[in-house]
Design a binder for these strands. Structure first.
Lengths: 209, 209
DNA sequence: TCCTATGTTGTACTGCCAGTACAACATTTC
DNA sequence: GAAATGTTGTACTGGCAGTACAACATAGGA
């Protein structure tokens, strides 16, 4: 079942847009068969029904993300720099696969109920972040926080939701520009924060010209 | 259809756990009928099928969140302080309604495909944040960032994902402690960031005793 | 009190669609 | 060229959402 011939695999991607648009429930197997050109009987021969299709598509996406992020994380730089690279890598893959991302977001519930996918999700998205934050504290490039688990979860959320929104909306400037823009915004947020550098309490507003 | 009698409304909440656990697809109308004690025919008399049930439950949750956050945001404090209050409010509601949150997360796709809910989602979660960030720049309590839209989306993601994870996991210390913990972690992250306060580039690690 | 509007519920039915069964045919491999 | 493996059309089954409807309940207004 993990031996899906390359040709079928590539055809299957034709179903991503459909699923992204209507959700898996709104998509009939016959629709998938028609959109991909793979006969229904063949789909069932190789995959475990609709869930199988979803699992295959999302599994691929998650592997891709985990791979790219893995590369970005494996340099000799300090953790803070690697964190920036990881953010950029994750966003770049997401922006390049908008349909898969939308399918993932839309059928998140189903995805997390498929054991393989739940694990893949975790290792693609959450774990690298968690590790980088810990590394950063160790090498001094990131601050020690009171609740590392909660912070890692928030960082994960910031990146992932921004990525999904970027993937969903698309833009005029093309995918790589989008990825760069969001990536910069996220790093600005999670590294430097939003508080004004000045006083940390009580300030009468000063209008700017 | 928005006139659901109070008694039925309260019974309907009995379906939240079911839906959270199995997803809406995995939940049969007859299961809902049995779990809530409302006969199937009555459900169909008042609501528009399964989607109607989901819409009712989540609509309620979102109204609640929007309400609490609205209160937190309407004080005379500066935007930074109100942002902290909004984070706390949102998390507190989420943590107190774990089943509804799980249902929301699991059936996000369906939810966003229901027009009323999509709008409610936006106004409960995203919009208050967006406004606060703008206010903060205006009153000087928050930093001006290069891409406010992208940053607002990331902040939204940080809060929401953390809230979902808090709601899903639960804990031994009770809901209000959870909310406070996550709330502190998120504010620490989005206000002060994770970069070490020291040098902003190039640092040979310095071990701490 | 009776009459009407509105709500409540059981029962029976319809239609759609995921998934299965299987036989016929194709391709590969040795 | 025979056996194994893969491919596909066709026809069927079962489960469940949603509907139809009649019987019954309740409330309120005259």
């Amino acid at each position: 079942m993990r031996k899906l011939p390359a040709k079928l695999a590539s055809q299957l991607y034709g179903a991503a847009e459909l699923i992204a648009e209507r959700g898996l429930d709104g998509t009939k197997i016959d629709d998938i068969a028609e959109a991909t050109g793979i006969p229904k009987a063949t789909i069932y021969y190789h995959l475990d029904g609709k869930n199988g299709v979803l699992a295959f598509l999302l599994g691929d996406l998650l592997d891709l993300i985990a791979g790219e992020v893995g590369v970005a994380v494996s340099t000799v730089e300090d953790a803070r720099t690697r964190l920036e690279a990881a953010v950029a890598a994750q966003l770049s893959v997401m922006v390049e696969h908008p349909f898969l991302c939308r399918a993932l977001a839309g059928d998140l519930g189903r995805a997390t109920r498929l054991p393989d996918l739940a694990e893949a999700l975790r290792s693609a998205f959450y774990q690298p972040i968690e590790k980088l934050l810990a590394d950063g504290v160790a090498d001094g490039s990131l601050r020690q926080v009171a609740d590392p688990g909660a912070v890692a979860m928030s960082v994960f959320g910031a990146i992932t939701v921004a990525g999904l929104s970027a993937a969903v909306e698309g833009s005029s400037t093309g995918p790589s520009a989008d990825a760069a823009r969001f990536s910069a915004a996220i790093c600005e947020l999670i590294l430097d924060g939003l508080a004004t550098p000045r006083t940390r309490d009580d300030h009468e507003s000063g209008e700017r010209p």
